[in-house]
Amino acid sequence: MLQFIAKRLVAGVVALFVVACLTFVLLYSTSGDVARNIMGDQASAASVAAKAHELGLDQPLMSRLSSWLWQATHLQFGTSWFTSQPVFTAIANRLPLTLTMVCVAILLIGVVATFLGVTAAVKRGAADRAVQIMAVLAASLPGYIVGIVLVLVFAIQLRWFPAISRIGPRSGAAVWVASLTLPVVALMLNGIAGAAQQIRSAFIKQLEQDYVRTLRSRGIPEREILFRHVLRAAAPAGLTVLSLQFISLLGGVVIIESIFALPGLGSLAVSATTQGDLPLVMGVVIYTVAIVVVVNLLVDVANGWLNPKVRVS
């Protein structure tokens, strides 16, 4: 088991390294005249050149990459070109809000999708069709449309929730709940049906296994077979579904934060992208991928623990 975890850990670090290198090359080899953009049109050629030198833009790409990687091992990701704030600080300020939303959303998706998926698999019929139709609808509506509709109905028409986040540095729990309810629901809606559909297939696949028939022949009650045996056997597939959902939530949160004007990682990513603040964009990519790597590692470990073939050996 320890060997298994170590293997996955190494694979995750390697993946992170590869993504960092590719992103760095993508960002910095194509970026145009950044120094000119920062200094403005009025600046002299000399001051632009000085700025370019200050940012290290006159260095060869590979030496910049290696120095970035070296600093990254010390958790230093450079400073923002526009605010001069360290990237680490900028992201650390924004991360808690985003992570809260994504984690709450994935937990709720896990619970609701498992319930829907298992119901559809066991009852079939109407419940099954409802999940299928919901999945088609959810796949047809991009996240921002879901967000807009929620704002229109629940914030503008019904006035149940604020349309725009009121979260400030000293907000209490009530403000957080009020401001985050709609965004989290918007995040969830796109994921639930798809996840439920996949959990349904995983559950049906297990229901058709031979051992389920044998358990029934032994006189074990159906409820116990479903929840003790089948659910457990379908759990690894379900966790994998949820880990993929988690990855797409990290993307979806970008849009939702923009709609609800939430000061999270996503809106930071959008503003950094608009400005061309490459160190900050780079930092956001690395942080997001690192989160994914950690989540995938946790899922791998959980699945390994659920599988006696991995756990016992």
Binding site: L26, T30, S248, I255, V270, L278, M282, V289, V292, N296
Partner: peptide, 21 residues
């Protein structure tokens, strides 16, 4: 493939947008 699937698409597209306009 596993690495590609671990990438959140939206974030990557933002990075691409930052790089190529």
């Amino acid at each position: 493939t596993n690495i590609l699937m671990a990438l959140p698409g939206m974030i990557v597209l933002l990075a691409v947008r930052a790089a190529v306009g």
